[in-house]
Computed example of a mutant assay.
Amino acid sequence: MTNLIAPPTARPVTPLGILTQKLEAIVQEVNQHQDLPADLVAEINQAWQLAAGIDPYLEECTTEESVALAVLAKITAIEAWGERFTAGATVRPLEQEMLSGHIEGQTLKMFVHMTKAQRVLEIGMFTGYSALAMAEALPADGVLVACEVDPYAAEVAKTAFGQSPHGAKIRVELGAALATLEKLAATGETFDLVFIDADKKEYIAYFQMLLDTSLLAPQGFICVDNTLLQGEVYLPAEQRSVNGQAIAEFNHTVALDPRVEQVLLPLRDGLTIIRRV
């Protein structure tokens, strides 16, 4: 099955995607200059080929997404998200690139299998791709609670869940993530696996709440998306956006917290795996 996550015109939103785009522009420029040393041109072309080939090869070697996930990815890709950003409707502009996608979806699904999680919490659902991918790995009596602040995105997700045999495992909580977390903690809910992919400026608050309450099970894991934030976290500080600075501060906070150990994987836009010590 062909992966239908994004049309060819989708902008690059990962360090590798941005690097590949820049290398392609350099290749096009150097190939127009006949006076450059042939060895230099060959090296630059090979650098571009190495970067450009990684994502397609990962797609080829990773288990195909389910039909339900492929359909949801296509629906998300063709939606006019720019027209959905209206005052009061959401706290952030929505865009197709917010979709976790095939490789990350299958990674999260594998994590659910590996940890044998029965209860999963997703902070930031968007149209539900990652939620549905993880739900596919949950046992029949498993539960996934998905938090989403945007009503329209939540409705797109609910429609997709209704078309999948695994959708019944998912419970959508609509509202601001921190308020939802407080409600879940107050009612004593706990989770084996938590996936964070919401407001970047609140990542530290999510992290602290998970550790300071019973939301994260004693042997639970936290997966955090976008922890490379388009490479901004390791570029000079003056080149960072507000979100880039927020993620840099989050990464620093996690690295210094003695209660956890973590690994940052260069998957898509960065995926950090955290566990209590």
Rank of each mutant, 00 (worst) to 15 (best):
D212C: 08
T2E: 12
G17I: 01
S164V: 15
V242G: 10
Q106R: 09
A153Y: 01
A186S: 15
G88F: 06
P7I: 15
E136R: 03
P218H: 09
T14Y: 04
V13A: 00
T180D: 13
A52R: 07
P218M: 10
L184F: 10
E43R: 08
I222N: 03
I247M: 08
F111T: 11
A154P: 01
Y234H: 12
P258N: 14
D39S: 13
A176C: 12
E148N: 05
T107P: 04
E83R: 14
G128R: 00
Y234R: 06
I5Y: 13
A179G: 12
T9V: 11
I18K: 01
E29P: 03
P8D: 07
G88K: 03
L215G: 05
F195I: 02
L72M: 12
D55E: 14
D225S: 00
A73R: 13
T9C: 11
F250P: 05
Q32S: 15
Q239K: 14
E232F: 05
R92T: 15
V263R: 15
I222Y: 00
C223S: 10
P266F: 08
A217V: 05
A237C: 01
G17V: 03
E79G: 15
H113I: 09
S130T: 09
E249F: 03
T127G: 01
D257F: 07
Q32I: 10
P12H: 04
V277C: 12
S214E: 15
A168T: 12
L138H: 02
I247A: 04
F250D: 00
D35R: 08
R92E: 12
W81Q: 08
Q32G: 15
A137K: 09
E249V: 00
E97C: 07
G270E: 01
E148L: 09
G162D: 02
E24V: 08
I196Q: 05
Q262G: 07
E202H: 08
V263K: 15
R240A: 04
P8Q: 07
Q46R: 14
F195Q: 02
V27P: 05
F126E: 10
L178M: 13
R268C: 09
I247C: 06
A89C: 07
G175W: 13
M1I: 10
I222D: 00
L235F: 00
G82Q: 14
I54P: 04
T227I: 11
L69P: 06
A10F: 01
P139F: 10
V224H: 06
Y203G: 02
R119W: 06
G188Y: 11
R275D: 03
G128D: 03
F195N: 03
A73W: 08
A198T: 14
F195D: 04
F161R: 02
F191P: 01
S241P: 11
W48Q: 15
Q21H: 10
Q96E: 15
A186H: 14
I222K: 00
A87V: 15
L94F: 11
Q208A: 11
F250L: 08
V277D: 13
R119K: 06
F126S: 04
I18A: 01
L99I: 07
I78C: 08
E95T: 14
V242R: 10
A68F: 04
A176T: 11
A131R: 04
Q96H: 11
E238N: 06
M209A: 10
